[in-house]
Design a protein around this nucleic acid. Structure first.
Lengths: 224, 224
DNA sequence: CGCATGGTTCGATCCTCATCGAAGCATTCC
DNA sequence: GGAATGCTTCGATGAGGATCGAACCATGCG
């Protein structure tokens, strides 16, 4: 009977259906409140609260208090990666499900992830930015090329780095399961999409809906 | 309350301490019998058997029956990857451990894996045997070269194949995460190391401790 | 202030599941 | 064949933990 890192403890945290649903909901990348998570998990508020404190104690979540709201989010990319891995095995083993991620079609196409764009459109955009060498892959990081810097400046998209936050960062897409662009540049691009009125945020949802004309413009600028 | 792939089911399989210990033991890459796993997990044979059937049903293990022995192994690299990910989080969260695999330094250097040598020494040895062309890589298998056969015979190391068991087999090292040598040759080499008193097995542990002189001899014969 | 809203803590209940001894199969060895 | 070994199944026991209602804090609003 050997004693390693306490893998059973971590796994059992994910092993409860209510907690698994909560973590799954948080895979979208946005932090959620206790009541929202209770709804997602299908349990009462006290029960959810109990689960959340366990997940906190296990180090799987972070907490940001804002007024009387308390926003829970995944603690790290490592935790998200672990859940991805578990989901992968679950999908391989149980041949039940068809599509991962949000069931809502609009959410799969485009949605907000924290402060940047996610979904099929966002994944396609990152692919194109690599193709056009505006961004460069470096190990596991993403770097802005000199031509990319010029390009985004010309579009009026600011790219100054803030403290501790990189300009470009890969963020694993919940529904597509491939990376999209995060970081200050990712956020600035979403800002521009909203400012230009190419798309608007759906009310009470993270979905981002493009107008017909806006979609054309977006594709011309980012997907051509 | 969304319904995804049954992630809670998979995670809860890993979430039991006994099962976690078993899976952890199987991360070494060698398939183990039910009794060995019961020992690793610190539970009785019936309990272990019950856990193993659950892991089988969950698709996490494969089973190879050989006579009255039943060898359990991890079902896939994907499953191993998932466990790696969970271990990673557990290590990041619990600030206790630093390195993956056995915590004991002696265990990392050299230990017994089933019936052959594992650990840094064993991985280095296999590297050298390849370099010296005493062993040859063939696809995913390892073959003894003619010069190798002569070499080991001269050392008094028997190399006859037993039924169903290959002379050479690669075995993924638990701590180093690279292959070391298993099979009848791997076992015979460990036998020689013990017989020559170059090293002894630590009591109640899988660690193998070399004596100063024995280490020199071993390095002269296998690492030069 | 007093009320409403968002969250947590407490207590009691209930149920799943891990555990092991004993008995039952299966395979191999003599 | 019989005995020994390896493993699984059965049955009974027990403990941990998920759950929710009710009560309890905290923040914000008027």
């Amino acid at each position: 009977m050997r004693e390693g890192p306490d893998i059973a403890r971590i796994a059992s945290l994910v092993g409860d259906p209510a907690r698994a649903n909560m973590l799954n909901a948080l895979m979208g990348g946005t932090a959620l409140t206790a009541s929202e998570l209770a709804l997602e998990a299908g349990v009462s508020l006290p029960t959810a609260s109990s689960h959340l404190s366990k997940l906190m104690e296990g180090g799987l979540l972070t907490l940001a208090s804002q007024g009387r709201h308390r926003y829970y989010g995944l603690a790290s990319a490592q935790v998200a990666g672990m859940i991805e891995a578990i989901i992968g095995v679950a999908e391989a083993v149980g041949p039940k499900r068809v599509r991962p991620g949000p069931r809502d079609a609009a959410m799969r196409v485009a949605r907000v992830c924290y402060d940047h764009l996610a979904g099929e459109q966002a994944v396609a955009m990152l692919d194109r930015l690599f193709d056009r060498k505006l961004l460069l892959r470096e190990d596991n990081e993403i770097r802005l090329s000199s031509s990319g810097a010029a390009h985004f400046s010309a579009l009026g998209i600011g790219i100054q780095a803030k403290a501790r936050r990189p300009v470009c960062r890969a963020c694993l897409d919940w529904s597509v399961r491939r990376s999209h662009l995060a970081g200050t540049l990712g956020a600035a691009i979403l800002d521009k999409i909203i400012a230009e009125k190419w798309a608007r945020r759906e009310k009470d949802s993270r979905a981002v809906v493009f107008s017909p004309g806006g979609k054309r413009e977006f594709e011309k600028v980012f997907l051509s």
